[in-house]
Write a protein that binds this DNA or RNA. Structure first.
Lengths: 97, 97
DNA sequence: CATATATTTGCATTATTGCGCAAATATGTC
DNA sequence: GACATATTTGCGCAATAATGCAAATATATG
């Protein structure tokens, strides 16, 4: 197993492994439409600047996609990517021997 | 979604989301037999005491099982638990809308 | 019991992280 | 452009976490 692969996976899990960030992810789970940051603020009781940073962290980890359509800035889950990586890890743990 | 559930899931992901700990997990993936701590030390270049602490962290998160058979102390992956939790999260992200 | 090895724990250090606040920078509206 | 709102960034602080070393505590073996 390459070190970089381990690091990449660790980065994804670390990004998900914080209460407020995971709350944001669950919140976005429920949204059929992409959401703007303010709309997401109410799911965790922290300052808007903190939400902004968490969203950035999640986006950098490939968990969220930032959609800049014209003047709107909205976030949505990159479901495929997150699901694939989680499943890949699960499968590896389950089957490698 | 309950706060405690979010917290529990975040705790699991946080435990996995650190390079040396994830390296230990991958290392244990390859082991059909439970391993003692020293045997696991070579997969990450840190002090044995650090490995000991990481193993403890992983065990507390339900990722590893500590087997004390007689005088042997060995660690093994709790594959079922980790796999179930990862898959549950993946499914939630994939399907909840 | 004495000795060797394995593992954990206490302690100090350093690095990282989450947070709030205020200021700066968009971005949209009139 | 002036103004309101949304978002990001700089800064400092407090809490957490990772690490190494040395000492303590097992645990085996002679």
């Amino acid at each position: 197993m390459k070190q970089t692969e381990i690091q990449d996976t660790a980065d994804l899990l670390k990004a998900l492994g914080e209460f407020n960030r995971l709350s944001l992810v669950y919140r976005l789970c429920e949204c059929p439409q992409p959401q703007n940051a303010m709309c997401l603020c109410d799911c965790c009781s922290v300052d808007a600047s903190v939400v902004s940073r968490h969203l950035k962290t999640l986006a950098q980890a490939g968990i969220l996609k930032l959609d800049k359509k014209g003047r709107e800035r909205t976030y949505s889950l990159d479901r495929a990517n997150v699901v694939n990586q989680l499943r890949a890890l699960a499968t590896k743990i389950e089957t490698s021997l």
